[in-house]
Each structure stands twice: as C-alpha cells, then as structure tokens.
C-alpha cells in the first residue's frame, strides 16, 4: 500500500443550517483514484470543494502531504496561505463551457497558472504551454484561439491542461466527464488515465455515473444525504454491496444489453 496523500477526518459543512456534509472521513493514497458517488443533494460536490478549500468546512480536519513530505492541515489556512499550496492541488470542472474565461485565448488561459506562481520566464513558460498542449493532444494553432472556437471535448482538454500545467499531486475531477457525449467522454477518460500514469497523479473523482466510476476508480465512497454510507474497493462495492442504498443505486443502472432488463429495487420497501 502506497503512502496516503490526503486524510479527511470528521468533516462537517452546512449551508444556512442545512447540513450538506456530515461526519465524513476518508483517506486517499498517492497515485490512486478515489470515486465519490451519490445523487444530487448527497453532498459529494460540497465535500470535494471543502477538500480544495473552495469553500470553508465548518468542522473537521483536512490533512494534505505536500511535495516536501510535510503534512499540513488545510482547514485553518487563510485564503492567502492557501495560494502556494494550490500548485499541488487542482480541479477539473464539470462544465467545459463556463469554466474557461471566454475573453482569454488558450495561450493566456494556460500561461496564467505559471504567471500566478511566478514560474519561469516568457520563453520557458511558452515551452511549458506547448508541452502540456501536446500532452492533452491539442494542436499548436489552438493557442491563438478563444474557447468558443472549440467543441465540448476540446474545451475539457483545455481545462485539464490548465489544471495539470502546475504539475499538481492531487486533482479533483468534479463531474468532469458528465457533460460530454459518450464518444467524447471515452476520449477524455482515456486521457485522464494516461496522464495519471505519466505524472503519477492522484484523482478524487466525483461523479453520478456509476459505470464511469467503475471504469476509472480504484476505490469508491458512496454518499447519501451528506453521509458516507459505504466505502471500499470498486470490486467489493460493485460485486457485494453491503448497504441497501448502494444496492438501490446499482440496480438502477440501465444496461445497454436489451437482454438484461432494468429491475430497480423499490426505494420505499428499503425504507430510503
């Protein structure tokens, strides 16, 4: 077992008195992919955003192992103290349309993280941008274009390139393939897997699509109403779910084989 990269202990977050995340604890090891699955309102996105300190958790501990092998606690850091740490943890958004600034060229979008963190000079930054562009399989002439000139899948590649140009250790993918067409989705999933191998990335993969999660993740966390109802390796959870809610979720996936009819469990009889 590899060393842990992130440890979340007893995390709580509520909005206006409504609890979104309740008493969540988990660990991610370096270079693994942890899936967080759940339906809308399960708190999975809130949890991911608390980990990145995009929003502030109410209670609990988020510990992160930095590049210098030092453990830091993120929950009490101020926004300014978080800035240097952001190099090591990045996010890929769900919506490839709204997550790119429409008024910046691809070159400006990809160079910005390097400028923010004062990395390199003009020439070396340009080289880095070209390098990451090749890694996400986009042409060099994309650089002078604006996001609106690209299709959804290409924009998501730009989003991934922006997240990876700082060479982070942890990447949070918040429904990053959910808005894409199935053929594009397959390309992006393959790309994420290739990049993970190449850079030794650790993914926190938030998704509602169980077949995607099954494909890409090593371990998963099933969330329901802000709580973790089940966690374990993908194999364990998919083949031998222990909790009623997990069983309900799995029974609801429509199979693309017409000979495997949909036969969902009844929510009411499970008391959910």
């Amino acid at each position: 077992m590899t060393e842990p990269l992130l440890e979340v202990t007893n995390l709580y977050k509520s909005f206006d008195g409504v609890s979104a995340v309740e008493d969540v604890s988990f660990t991610i090891s370096a270079s693994e992919t942890l899936g967080i699955v759940g339906e809308s309102g399960s708190g999975k996105t809130t949890l991911a955003r608390c980990v990145l300190r995009a929003i502030d958790p109410d209670r609990g501990v988020v510990r992160f192992r930095t590049g210098d092998d030092e453990w830091v606690e993120l929950q009490d850091k101020t926004d300014d103290e978080m800035i240097p740490l952001r190099q090591q943890m990045q996010m890929v958004f769900q919506d490839p349309f709204s997550s790119l600034n429409p008024r910046m060229t691809v070159q400006e979008i990809l160079e910005e993280p390097l400028i923010i963190h004062n990395i390199g000079n003009r020439g070396s930054r340009r080289a880095e941008v070209l390098d990451i562009l090749a890694k996400v399989q986009l042409d060099q002439d994309s650089l002078t274009r604006y996001p609106h000139a690209f299709s959804g899948g290409q924009r998501q590649r730009i989003g991934i390139a922006r997240a990876l140009i700082l060479r982070p250790k942890l990447v949070v993918c918040d429904e990053s393939v959910s808005a894409l067409d199935v053929s594009v989705q397959a390309q992006i999933i393959n790309l994420l897997e290739d990049l993970q191998e190449e850079f030794g990335l650790t993914y926190l993969f938030v998704a509602h699509d169980l077949s995607v999660v099954h494909h890409i993740c090593d371990r998963i966390l099933v969330m329901h109403r802000g709580r973790v109802v089940e966690q374990g390796s993908v194999q364990e959870v998919f083949e031998d779910p222990q909790e009623d809610y997990t069983r309900l979720l799995l029974s609801a996936i429509p199979s693309p084989d017409p000979d495997e009819p949909l036969n969902p469990l009844d929510r009411k009889s499970l008391g959910l």
Binding site: I83, Q90, D95, S98, N101, E112
Partner: peptide, 26 residues
Amino acid sequence: EEDFVMAARLLGAGRLRVIFRHMMPS
C-alpha cells in the same frame, strides 16, 4: 459564482487578479 472565476481562485490567483483579469472584462 461563475466557474471560470472559481477556477482562477483555485489556481491561486489573488483578489486583484481575479477582479481585474477575470471579472472586470466580463
């Protein structure tokens, strides 16, 4: 609340940069 503004924050952009580079032009 826009995603691209949140993205800039998560990249580590300071307040002034978020305002002047991302919000003002919009």
